[in-house]
Design a protein around this nucleic acid. Structure first.
Lengths: 359, 359
DNA sequence: CTGTTAGCGCTTTCAC
DNA sequence: GTGAAAGCGCTAACAG
């Protein structure tokens, strides 16, 4: 038994008694006017030998790698993992290969990951949930190399098209729902972000605030104060629950508690639930709570979470579509620089019911 | 401003007034006997131009890609995501590039992912938590291509070295602990796996059973029956909580409930907690519960979970180390084919306390 | 319809 | 100390 090595095009061609170029043409679908016989023969032999083209040689010759990079800041955040995976699916569907990295798990995270993307000659890059602190220098490296980048969720960066859930609408829907249940004294719990950064970078937080305030404003004036709390979120991706818990613990120190707390995302809500349990504050009886993202775990938490479902699949598809267009050298269309897809209100137990609210 | 394109070695060499081979030697550290001047000049110019070697060209010429593939079946399973990420870290540390794919998010999952690994000419493959149903044909493809494979957790396959947590010891520790608290009538809830498969493939479940039974056996005979329930686990990675919940719902139909239930992993435990909440069975007062894996969420679940912490980092390092050795053509050492690393008992609230158990 | 040819960017002998 | 040259596997003109 000879030591079988990876078959090359040359071997296929030889076996078929043809030239490499012929084999190449046929296997690449440019089989325009080859005789049915040769074509069949080449294809059969390739299959029998288990021939797979060498991507490196292809990339080299074609001067394009056919790879799209996905850079995620997911850590333990289910919602981010899901977005990244949907992006991977969309990339494959669009006919590209995927190079996927979670920057959190590397030494010197972002920088190394970006270098590796550059080295691999990715043709485009999807940034999944980039934080406001994502280094602009790295984005510059891609711009210099003429590699288009799109963001899927996360913070907003100049010149980078972005697809994300309409957080403003989502938070407005949540707030309206809580108000309609009769809850008063609402409180929005969101991370303080991107200290010293362009305001645009903090959009995830800012839009949540907007939606929250809008819903409050459109309701009757007698509703009392809407409060927004900006909480710290160190190492968010690795300690999402802890951060939410810490924020809620702080809030629970107060003599007078809010009636309903809207958390920035499901992970914070889970941490918040935990803090409530510690202090024996019953949810939703004494305090209503909502999340954002509709991650699977929110359905199984202590109290199932009312939340906003992100259309992850549609978002990912759209982002990759835009990226593919940019790779092809097409210009952005009017709506492309910022696509906001609507989230969907998912009502579960954590927001309470009308009757309980009036307690 | 000229359209900057990716600089090649040729450009670096030209700018330095030297030949490509010289530049190559210097930049690859084979600068054995070049003058200090030339060396410095080449290095400086390379840095200024932002030169990065073209991986494809390198792979081609060196006839090795320098890439290790990571194939995960994680889905929403935090423990698996963590293992995969630790593996990625270990791979980078070992000086290889990473090609990471979660097979669940691709059409025709496993097969496509394996093809893509093969196409990329990975030098080795880490299989993270492969299910018992992982197709052996795919493993054969790697064997034929002389690409070594190691499993990090998951099922066991012939000829594939594996590194995993010692589930038997872990489950024995959990069981002992529950017994020491005074709990009787214990029940182990594990997935029925790999229908019609080699028994070895089902080791994750089998070892849990062994540990469970051993602890029971070594204790007094008067402890009553230890029961093992094999529950269905369709699409485990995408519906982990649901599966645990379904299994527990079934169990809760019984007239007489077990006093303590040991779940196969934390995700099942969370689903189980959910089922208990539905039926108003209080944990741990009426029923103790334990998980396995120590995923972050278990600390924040309805009732914080007593569980076994997997030494993910050490496991990943070990797996990659073995893989690297195989890639270098070295033979396996005596312990390598199956490495079992000890898990650590983490005691939280879900297992109850001695006093409650005697209730 | 099929084959010849010229590289893609890099590494690696082997000469000088 | 440095450079010339060959060639990895593949594609894409261009010839026949």
């Amino acid at each position: 038994m000879r030591s079988r090595t990876v078959p090359t095009l040359l071997q296929v061609a030889r076996e078929a008694g043809l030239s490499v170029s012929t084999a190449s043409h046929i296997l690449n679908g440019h089989s325009s006017r080859y005789s049915e016989v040769t074509r069949a023969s080449v294809e059969k032999i390739a299959r029998r030998l288990g021939y797979h083209p060498n991507r490196h040689a292809q990339a080299m010759r074609r001067k394009r790698s056919g790879v799209i990079g996905i850079l995620q800041h997911a850590g333990l955040l289910q919602a981010a993992v899901q977005k990244a995976n949907q992006a991977a699916l969309a990339v494959v569907t669009a006919g590209y290969e995927v190079l996927n990295t979670d920057v959190l798990w590397r030494p010197q995270g972002v920088q190394m990951a970006c270098s590796s993307m550059l080295d691999a000659h990715v043709e485009g890059l999807v940034l999944v949930d980039p934080p406001a602190t994502f280094p602009l220098e790295e984005l510059r490296r891609f711009r210099l190399a003429h590699i288009p980048v799109v963001a899927l969720g996360g913070a907003r960066f100049p010149e980078i098209p972005q697809v994300r859930v309409d957080a403003r609408q989502g938070m407005r829907d949540l707030t309206r729902h809580l108000l309609s249940l009769g809850h008063r004294r609402l409180c929005l719990l969101i991370p303080r972000m991107g200290e010293g950064r362009d305001e645009a970078a903090c959009w995830p937080s800012i839009e949540r605030q907007r939606g929250f305030r809008e819903a409050y404003a459109e309701a009757d004036a007698a509703l009392g104060n809407a409060e927004v709390i900006l909480a710290e979120s160190p190492n968010e991706a690795m300690h999402p629950y802890q951060n939410g818990r810490a924020a809620m613990r702080e809030l629970l120190q107060r003599p007078r508690l809010p009636r309903a707390v809207l958390c920035s995302n499901d992970d914070w809500a889970i941490g918040a639930l935990n803090a409530c349990a510690e202090r024996r504050v019953r949810v939703p009886e004494e305090m209503a709570l909502t999340g954002f993202d509709n991650s699977m775990i929110g359905e199984f938490s202590m109290v199932p979470l009312t939340t906003i479902a992100q259309p992850a699949e549609a978002m990912a598809r759209r982002a990759v579509e835009i990226l593919a267009r940019l790779i092809r050298g097409e210009r952005l269309r009017p709506g492309d620089p910022l696509v906001r897809l609507p989230g969907e209100l998912v009502i579960r137990r954590s927001c309470g019911t009308g009757s309980a609210a009036r307690m």
